[in-house]
């Protein structure tokens, strides 16, 4: 199932590249709308996991798409749009967290409590519980390791794309992910594999 999800995400990534390419070349608004359809859920999921409150997460994703729109003339033909979009979202997140910390005197905005993904109340509740355990375990591991794990496992980026977003090498990111998984397995035991299934 995980492989299927990854395959779908890779397909989405390819379609997103094609849509961005078309938008950059021709300025076709339908291509931009298609790009939003393909990237919005993933970006929103990523940003929501980091921020408290859906409204600010949506604002941030909106800004992210606006940047893609404003930079369409600078788009490199054939380049991947997904890592660029994630890197913009990551930068905007960092800026927002810093400004919130300044305003609130050091209180962190990082939350790491993802919203439930299924709609049935019982399942949603159970899923929220296990995800809260994962979020709590993620909070305990180093930030670089957590980021590597989140980008690859939770957001479905390839190792290369995740390394580009995190501004590091693929080998380093792979090692960080490995350390993160080992630390999470230590804290969650076999539940980790169940959580990721």
């Amino acid at each position: 199932m995980t492989a299927k999800v990854h395959s779908t995400r890779e397909q989405d990534g390819g379609e997103a590249d094609a849509a961005m390419d078309c938008y950059a070349r021709e300025g076709d608004p339908r291509a931009f709308a298609r790009l939003i359809d393909l990237l919005q859920p993933r970006l929103l999921g990523y940003v929501r996991r980091q921020l408290q409150g859906d409204v600010s997460a949506e604002d941030l994703v909106q800004t992210c798409f606006l940047k893609l729109h404003q930079h369409r003339g600078r788009f490199t033909p054939g380049a991947a749009v997904l890592p660029y979009a994630f890197a913009i979202a990551r930068r905007l997140l960092i800026d927002k967290i810093r400004s919130d910390r300044r305003e609130r005197g050091g209180e962190s905005e990082l939350m790491n409590h993802p919203p439930p993904m299924c709609t049935e109340p019982e399942h949603a509740l159970a899923q929220r519980r296990v995800l809260a355990r994962l979020a709590s375990a993620l909070d305990e591991i180093p930030a670089h390791h957590r980021e590597a794990f989140e980008l690859t496992t939770l957001d479905g980026l390839s190792l290369e794309d995740a390394a580009a977003v995190a501004d590091t090498t693929t080998t380093t990111l792979k090692m960080r992910k490995h350390y993160a998984r080992a630390a999470l397995r230590q804290r969650l035991g076999d539940d980790l594999e169940d959580l990721l299934r």
């Binding site: 931009f32 709308a33 949506e58 909106q62 798409f65 729109h69």
Partner: peptide, 11 residues
């Protein structure tokens, strides 16, 4: 969706 509409309007 609402967010998509907002993005397109802002763009």
């Amino acid at each position: 969706n609402d967010l998509k509409q907002r993005i397109l309007a802002a763009a």
